[in-house]
Design a protein around this nucleic acid. Sequence first.
DNA 1: ACTTTCTTTTGACAATTGTCAAAAAAGGAA
DNA 2: TTCCTTTTTTGACAATTGTCAAAAGAAAGT
Lengths: 188, 188
Amino acid sequence: MNALFNCISQYHPISIPAWEVLSEALTQVELPKNSFLVREGMVCNNLYFLERGCLRGYYNNQDGKEVTYWFGFENNFITSFYSFISRKPGIENIQVLEDSTLWGISFETLNQLFDQHHDLERLVRIINEQYYIRLEERLMAMQFKTARERYEQLLGTSPHILQRIPLGQIASYLGISQETLSRIRSQV
Amino acid sequence: MNALFNCISQYHPISIPAWEVLSEALTQVELPKNSFLVREGMVCNNLYFLERGCLRGYYNNQDGKEVTYWFGFENNFITSFYSFISRKPGIENIQVLEDSTLWGISFETLNQLFDQHHDLERLVRIINEQYYIRLEERLMAMQFKTARERYEQLLGTSPHILQRIPLGQIASYLGISQETLSRIRSQV
DNA sequence: ACTTTCTTTTGACAATTGTCAAAAAAGGAA
DNA sequence: TTCCTTTTTTGACAATTGTCAAAAGAAAGT
């Protein structure tokens, strides 16, 4: 739980009482490789903090292909965002790529904590904003950069991804075919 | 200001006192077509609500080309998000595409209001979340749909954009060249 | 070591999209 | 209207990326 505390503190330090109620509300979840945290069609009721391991979010498109649109690593917050926020079933699957340790809190509990501790709601607002900025950067790359540029950007910002994730999933994440990524990689 | 009140209420109804301090804190801004709300290199200190008119956010890429990455219409919240949140200069320009009426609030004032009215911070958290979901949808379209599919999706969700915005800017927004968009359009 | 399975690479070819240049069309100003 | 400017369309061609199929390589299990 230290990792979470440290992570939170980088976004917005919270009061000790707020941290106490939060840490009491968290449930530890251990999941083995290849299991699923979230399945399409269900409402995702929990927000998670990933302490150890790695995950990916993907969905199945019309052609029956898996489309990976994010990876989660240590110290990332994880949820099926659309479903968690809208309280509706989502199309997203969250798969465990390495044995993982997470800390979870339910939507209801989190919102109760927001009522009690303004602090916590501020923390979440700030975290949301930072994640929004990251998403914006990804969108800009997707909109105006070539496959090669997107790959090189990934190399620069998140080289660890390339060590830990199969090529096909990275290609999908970059919005290109596995073959194209393989060719780009051989030409660098 | 009614438009803002109605818009807010759809996200999260706030208390009357909260609305009162908020509406007192807002400054009306009128801008003519082709003027700029934000210029690259500056820190964007304000969050705006667009009551009337339309705007676009764009930046100049390495090749010196304008890259449009969003449009704002009536009842949208507008800011140079990265700059507003991080308090750093951004690369974004926000240009007025039609004579516009906006209501603005500064970063400092907004944060003071957050301290006084938990309600307002919740409202902003919720709005942020909804905007996050929209961005996620755009990213998914950009990642896995063809130019034609993205255009047709835009036709379905925001046909008004096509009436009000020059083709070149729409093409840039969709991440394709103007010529390609023109050809797609002639084939539908 | 030997299968078996999964992942990555390679080749051949097709489809999509971009670029450059010019023409056509539309919109504004005098 | 006429002129001028901006926007949109079209053509020809090139570059990028995708698809399908097969081979090569790596990892996991027995």
